[in-house]
Structure formats: C-alpha cells, structure tokens
Design a protein around this nucleic acid. Structure first.
Lengths: 133, 133
DNA sequence: ATAAGGGTTCCAGTTACTGGAAGGTCAAGG
DNA sequence: CCTTGACCTTCCAGTAACTGGAACCCTTAT
C-alpha cells in the first residue's frame, strides 16, 4: 500500500503519516523505488492513532498506548490509568471553557451592541474591578 | 515601574511581557539604563491582555480589542462581533471535548482495569468496528 | 570588592502538524 | 520514445504563544 491509500484507509493526511514515521510511531517498509509500503498492521496502527488523537490523546500517550497494544502481557489497568488521566484532563478543560463561556457570555449580554462607543465588554476586560456591572 | 512590578501588577510573567513587547502589543518606554519603564497605561493594557487571554481570546483578537479600546469612536458592535465569534469557538470546543469525554468515559467504564491482558479500551481504539462493545 | 538580585538580549525548544519547493517515479497516450 | 500528469520523495520553514536557559549588564548593600 502506498501512502495515499494508507491515508485513505486511516483517515490521516499523508503529511501526517510521514510525520508519524519521522517520530517513529509507525515504521513502514520501503519499496525498491523508495516509496513507503504500508502493511495491514501499519494501517491498523495508523487507524488506532487517528482514533486516539481524535479522542485528544497526546502523541506521547498514543506512543504508550501503542506499546501497550503490542505488549501481550500488559495489564488492562495500565491502559486504564492512561485513559483515566486523560479523562481528567478533558474534564478540566471542559470546566475551564465553561467558566470562560459563562463570563464572556455575561459580558456579551450586557453589551448593547450598537453604534454607541460605550462598550461594557471592553469595560469588563479593562476596568479595575472586572466583576462590576 | 520595572518589569517585575509590571508582572506583579498585571499577573503576567515577565517573560510573557517581554514577548508582548516583541510582538508589539505593548510599547513601554526605556530608562537610561535600558530597563523597561511601564506607565499606568501600560499596566492597564497588560491587565487587559491577561484577562482577555484568560478568556481564551487569541493574541490577534487581543490586538484587535486593544485597538478598539484605544479607538474612542469605535462602535460597541465591533467589540461584540469579536466576542460573539469567540464565544462560538468556545462552544464548539466544549462540544468537541464533551463528545470526547463521553466516548472515552464509555471505554473506561467497560474496562475491568485489572491484571488481565484483555483491554476493551485498546479494542475500542484499534478494532475495525469501534462502536462494538 | 563583591555578592545578591534585579535587568537585558538572543537562541532554542515546545506541540503536532502543515505548506511548499525541488525533484524522482510510474502508467497511459500519442 | 516522449511527454504529461499524478504520484512519490526529502528538506526547509512556519504556525501559537510562550518558556527555559545562557551570557552578560546594572544596582544596592554589605
């Protein structure tokens, strides 16, 4: 399989796959002409990577998960630990963003949004007491 | 005011303030000895930046907001437009993260998390049909 | 005189790609 | 046989927004 088929099959851009080879997440063989030759296992790993990345796992987490995947003797608790830590990070980000949204949404609601130069949003961001209405 | 006082007053690390000067978000004067001299206006702008960044506005958004702040004739609707766009981005991120969390949380719940090598999380990430239990 | 605790610049690294240039390879058509 | 177009290759640079560190200058106190 050439890189464009691998891209098609995994859902990753070819550029990204080359990058993943560079950082040694995948190690496809090469044909005589220098083209990368992806096996079914390579495709599987790339698909795995695409899914894990879509779930927000970092590249290093992905590397660890792939290693665990290959390690037939690993305990499922090892994987669970990584997943739970990541879940915590996601929860924290959601909480952060939710707080941002609430604050910003409040500012936006207090803004008349017309042609007048007086703007409560800028006031809220710039005043000494940002909680003041 | 020296940079460490400006950092204290604005809540930004000195490194970040230097960076903001480099990208021309602030333009403090210099003392004879070469030290940056921050005025009250500089501090105000830095505080503004700290708050806007904490709300997740990009640097370029911050630049625009600061320009609007200085522009006494600007309409509040200009500011509101930037804020609303950003609010949409935040909502989109929350939605993404929530979807991630739900999927991952489901995978974690199906994982027994003990010493057995069989791991539903890896299965979920690697199998052909990721929706399968 | 010197030591601590400021300040300065500049360079490199971070994350995870992405775009683009320059050039080799392959299959089809004329 | 040659060309054309679609592949493929490598390498270099850039993105966002800092952050760490080295090397060096300034100030103040002992």
């Amino acid at each position: 399989m050439n890189i464009s088929q691998a891209a098609e099959a995994s859902g990753l851009p070819a550029k990204t796959i080359r990058y993943y080879e560079e950082i040694e997440l995948v190690k496809p063989e090469r044909n005589a002409n220098g083209y990368r030759a992806f096996t079914d296992t390579d495709i599987h790993n790339l698909t795995f990577l695409a899914r894990a990345r879509a779930l927000g796992f970092s590249i290093e987490d992905c590397r660890a998960l792939l290693a665990l995947y290959d390690d037939k003797s690993r305990a499922s608790s090892d994987v669970r630990k990584i997943a739970l830590r990541h879940l915590d990070e996601i929860e924290a980000k959601i909480a952060d963003l939710t707080a941002m949204r609430d604050t910003l949404s409040h500012l936006v609601q207090t803004c008349h949004g017309d042609d007048r130069p007086d703007c409560p949003i800028l006031k809220g961001l710039g005043d000494d007491d940002p909680t003041r209405t």
